[in-house]
Design a binder for these strands. Structure first.
Lengths: 331, 331
DNA sequence: CTGAAAGCGCTTACAG
DNA sequence: CTGAAAGCGCTTACAG
């Protein structure tokens, strides 16, 4: 698997490696005769030359690699983000390294380390709980980073996110106005700021409304089982109830519970979920959901990273996108 | 963002870079005194040293990078595969580059080129139609490659796949035995061998059965719309009909059509789908489906690649996994 | 218009 | 037990 190098081209074309490099990189400044140019290009083609980007990276201290750390690439939400990031990154000439943290700070740290050792030019990350130290380490090394979806409480980093609190306020208001006896908030038992925001927005409005409320907080493992157990214990069909699922996983788990137990939506209970997934469309009733502008967020995250890499970004710029309530038939 | 190198460690610890390298790599052969060892490790920690894998890669001609080319990372099927590949790759010390081909041979070729220039140690690929040339190019460069999900007709490459033909035969038999008037096969209008196999298995059995059959072959773009149109035109509810959707995308599109048009499963029509997705569980009826052992396939693909990279694999080894029919309530 | 040379950060065979 | 040196495949300031 020994591949041709510019040295080989130089030898065969009887020029110096410098000249080869100039020609291959189409540098304008240095005028090379058309004759040698042509010869070099021919030889390159003949011997199937492909540049070694690793060597170039080493010399240039630029790898054109960016690292993406998500919680789990097999989660619809993140795989959709990854796809848009991939497209945008390619446009700007970057190749994408991907890793999943599983919400585990140790895995997260290892990924940052790995990516940093691979000399990625920057990282797009979805921080996990207790990842502050790993991130501070990156910052101290002046690593370009952009957060996506999530953000850090104590560190100001460029990033993209949605208006979590506001959209939850809106959803809560919407449900309150419909006159439910009880509203159930299904969220995670977590310290992730963006999820706390989601809950806070809801809490603020529900408190003001006086409507009866239950909060089911789910641990991040065995989500499906936990959601089932909690709903079983807490869902009272005698009351006119609405459930607000604050993530796609929670929504899917909850809808599955309703389906399995033959609970009709919106007849027996009303539902609003978070994030879009094809599954919502296959449910007996089309599910109303909160839609994040994933493509725009992903694209913006790459742009933010790219400007950081090229040093023309004011520190800590955070871009907030607006989530949209997509009303269907589940309320 | 200038990071410390072994040169810096050498200078501060007052030893040679060779010695630093030996210590950091814990080479046993060369005995270094405990004192210098300790000193070097201390200095390394003090100045926050992290190895530059790009430099190492260049020297060693091994990048510990592997490239994964799927059709679309935002497709559930591939993101699940990617996740398992990621886990297995990490275990073996590889980092994963990911790219989506969109079934486009030109994009596919670009990705192979990109990955090859980035000096990945090998690639796991889902070939697209007309990608033979790009792949032959890789082979001529003796690039370790493993195919996943799909395979090539004219080139013998190590890879993992399922028994596409057999499982379709099984599904067809199963439906024939249930005594349907008509069976509709929904597949792709494509030349991809593994999908043709899927269709061939079905065709073989349906021909022998004498049951009335329709084949709806869908182009790879605007799948949802096409499936809707085709089903609208071809689904005759007066006959006792079963539909076999031969991919997850087709299944989801088809089930959505049935849902939107209030067609009941299995009362009005019976359904079997391919691949697992959460969406199948949210459908009014639990959908019977063909399950591929994704995790095992993904793990095996990494192992195959790793053995190829390390040169202890007989050429062209192909591993066929057995898909499983998961019977639910949709027939 | 073209080339010799230094250097990016590593590893390792060799010498002492 | 330790170091000097070569080399992986590039780029580029400099000289001619």
């Amino acid at each position: 698997m020994k591949r041709a190098s510019i040295k080989d081209i130089a030898r065969i074309a009887e020029v110096s490696v410098a000249t080869v490099s100039y020609v291959l990189n189409k540098k304008e400044g240095s005028r090379i005769s058309e004759a040698t140019k042509k010869k070099i290009l021919e030889v390159a083609k003949d011997i199937n030359y492909t540049p070694n980007k690793i060597a170039k990276s080493l010399k240039m201290s630029k790898s054109k690699l960016i690292g993406l750390i998500v919680a789990d690439i097999s989660n619809d939400f993140y795989s959709n983000i990854a796809r848009s990031i991939e497209d945008e990154a390619m446009k700007l000439g970057y190749t994408l390294l991907i890793g999943s943290s599983d919400e585990n700070p140790e895995k997260f740290r290892k990924l940052t380390e790995l990516f940093s050792e691979q000399q990625v030019d920057g990282m797009i990350i979805a921080p996990v709980v207790d990842s502050d130290e790993a991130i501070k380490r990156l910052i101290s090394e002046e690593y370009p980073i952009v957060t996506i979806d999530r953000y850090l409480k104590n560190v100001s980093l460029p990033g993209v996110m949605i208006n979590n609190s506001e959209i939850s306020e809106f959803i809560c208001d919407h449900l309150v106005k419909k006159g439910f006896d009880e509203i159930i908030y299904v969220g995670y038992d977590t310290q992730l700021p963006h999820l706390l925001d989601r809950q806070d927005g809801f809490d603020k409005k529900i408190a003001a409304s006086g409507v009866s409320v239950k909060r089911l907080l789910i641990g991040i493992h065995n989500i499906t089982e936990q959601v089932h157990t909690q709903l079983k214990e807490n869902l009272n069909l005698k009351k006119k109830t609405a459930i607000y699922f604050s993530s796609n996983k929670l929504g899917i788990a909850g809808l599955r519970y309703l389906n399995d137990n033959n609970i009709k939506v919106p007849k027996d209970v009303s539902v609003i979920a978070f994030d879009e997934t094809e599954a919502y469309h296959l449910f007996p009733t089309e599910v109303s959901f909160v839609q994040q502008p994933l493509i725009d967020m992903a694209k913006e995250s790459v742009k933010l990273l790219d400007s950081q890499i090229n040093n023309y970004l004011p520190d800590g710029k955070r871009v907030t996108f607006h989530a949209k309530f997509m009303e269907r038939n589940s309320v």
